[in-house]
Design a protein around this nucleic acid. Sequence first.
DNA 1: GGATAACCGAGACGGTACGTCCGGTCTTACC
DNA 2: GGTAAGACCGGACGTACCGTCTCGGTTATCC
Lengths: 200, 200, 200, 200
Amino acid sequence: MTQRKTAPDSSRRSQTSRRAILTSAFDLVAESGYGKLSIEAIAARAGVGKQTIYRWWPSKGAVLLDALLMLSEGQDEQLMALPDTGDLEADLKLVLHATVAELNDPRYAEPMRALTSELMHDPALAADYVERLDRPMQELKKDRLRSAQRAGQLAADLDLDVAVDLLFGPPLKRWLMHGGPLTDEYADAVVETALAGLRG
Amino acid sequence: MTQRKTAPDSSRRSQTSRRAILTSAFDLVAESGYGKLSIEAIAARAGVGKQTIYRWWPSKGAVLLDALLMLSEGQDEQLMALPDTGDLEADLKLVLHATVAELNDPRYAEPMRALTSELMHDPALAADYVERLDRPMQELKKDRLRSAQRAGQLAADLDLDVAVDLLFGPPLKRWLMHGGPLTDEYADAVVETALAGLRG
Amino acid sequence: MTQRKTAPDSSRRSQTSRRAILTSAFDLVAESGYGKLSIEAIAARAGVGKQTIYRWWPSKGAVLLDALLMLSEGQDEQLMALPDTGDLEADLKLVLHATVAELNDPRYAEPMRALTSELMHDPALAADYVERLDRPMQELKKDRLRSAQRAGQLAADLDLDVAVDLLFGPPLKRWLMHGGPLTDEYADAVVETALAGLRG
Amino acid sequence: MTQRKTAPDSSRRSQTSRRAILTSAFDLVAESGYGKLSIEAIAARAGVGKQTIYRWWPSKGAVLLDALLMLSEGQDEQLMALPDTGDLEADLKLVLHATVAELNDPRYAEPMRALTSELMHDPALAADYVERLDRPMQELKKDRLRSAQRAGQLAADLDLDVAVDLLFGPPLKRWLMHGGPLTDEYADAVVETALAGLRG
DNA sequence: GGATAACCGAGACGGTACGTCCGGTCTTACC
DNA sequence: GGTAAGACCGGACGTACCGTCTCGGTTATCC
């Protein structure tokens, strides 16, 4: 079940309130951490009644998801594609550097962490997340790999989903588990090793 | 600062209560999910005063971590090593199958999910987790890879930490993000692709 | 500072809950004694959230005071006067008998004891008690004495506050200190002695 | 049932601890009020195990009673008598002034208030209080009145218990109920009015 | 003079209640 | 009908004490 509740966006809905709620949620979690993120706090900071939140979102995780989506609302229509200079390794390193930078920037990492933590206990929200954020990203990445595959730079029988996971799973593991520093050097090592294979 | 509070295990401490608390926590979360896991519920089910929990653990995440550690208390001394038949690919597939099975078994997945969600918001707990659960596991895995490296089955200059992440990061990503089915076939694909490299 | 918190009685306030809380408090203390009177117990018996009590009263003593005041809410407007048959001694004995009866009736004595005990440690509550219960009573008593004074039955220069204390202080002392039986005969002796003076 | 538990004073009992407990209790309540008086606080301040308190006293009220009794341990044997100059009115005013001063001195009033509040809910303690503090005082006062009665200064058929209550009940009422200032002038008025009678 | 038993400080234990915070529902009064 | 405001019931939080219960470590009699 996807977040139908979010969609209707009745014409009577106050866009002012919607934006105030989303930015309040995002800012609250970025400033004070997940612990301070409560529906009451969001409503208070947004100058909004609690009911206005409950009417349009099923959980604070859903608010958070919308808040993150709002950030990329500018480049909406024409979803930006990943860089394709022909040099696959360089392009991938560039993308992973960006990913690493985002995960290390508290401003984005904290809301992301909060959302991820909600995803783990809310399958409906997780499905929504996959559909609206994760899958589009995954497709973009697969597009770049497909281009390389067509150019003969990747194995012809390569499963692109696995390939994307091989590149982006390792940084995610470090980020989640705090299992070591999350640096550009690490990202480079991941790209090089994934491309060449463990056997070298 | 690691969870020193957990360690001292004063001689006055009631081992009966400790065990009751840990099994209660584990069972509660396995049966009813993370939402039902409250300190009050743990104390009630364990037949213990709340203070006895607060006295020895700083958060319910710390209780959960100890609960998971208790499960592997039997094989403490002789830390089991990973299988080493000489056939690296087969051994790794075996291990990843076990990992996948664990992540798919609600009995273990639910407590793990709960703990992971706590880790994300509690750096001290995360450090403790890394030290007491993650690093030992990581070392075991590196040991197996090192053995293969010595046998010439892996690149001589391979960074083993990166290698382990390349193998275990992808399933973790799927598990966390619900970004696709987590099957033995997927595990096999990950092992094969990681060993051969994306270039094939 | 008087108990302004109690007064506003915002139009949004639930009168149902208010009454349930006051009767629950009164009944609980009457049935089970002061020891069993906790905010939690009141809330539970009244079927009310604890916050609803904390929102409107600053302490359980304040609840108790309101509960006692609620009992005399019927005869609000026309504050009943003390009997005035012209026979001062008989009238006073009647009133003291009533006082003694009330102090001996567990149903009223227990809540009164509980309230008195709270008064002793809470000056704000004590001020409120004086203003809303004690002073009105005191005035009623002084009115009756004033009437007798005008009829020449009492000394012209008599301080009526002292006079009231002389009549009602002794039973209070016995009640508080358990310093002897609190009977109608005692009340009669107090009235007679006070009127005639120790010198006789 | 009287406080037998207090009496045995086994020869093995530590007098150091006993005194530390009593002075700690007295000082705690005098300094921080009744609210801060807990068995734990007494034990901590006295540098004593909680069990040592529970072993010798049945409640904190009992500790308080002993603490107050300890203060008058000096003049033990020869219980001081009330002043008897022959001038009854002057003597009584002197005694009531002393009473008023004590009730107005926070150092004594606070422990007294605390004890009184305990008495109200603990009949056994109340009985003990009457026997060990109240009755002896009452007898002293009656002795002085008896002397006056013999001298013909008081009615021959006067009930001395009632007489004492008539004199000491009114200040007690004011003290308890905060129903007006408790001054020497008030004490004088009580003595004069009680002696002369309300009729003048 | 060595056993032994009561007392001691300390503090963990199972509990109860505290006063606060927030979840999610409902009502009221605008607009 | 959407909204800001906020009262309401419920329930968990983390803390403070309750009274009971060991645990070692002194005493301080009694054999």
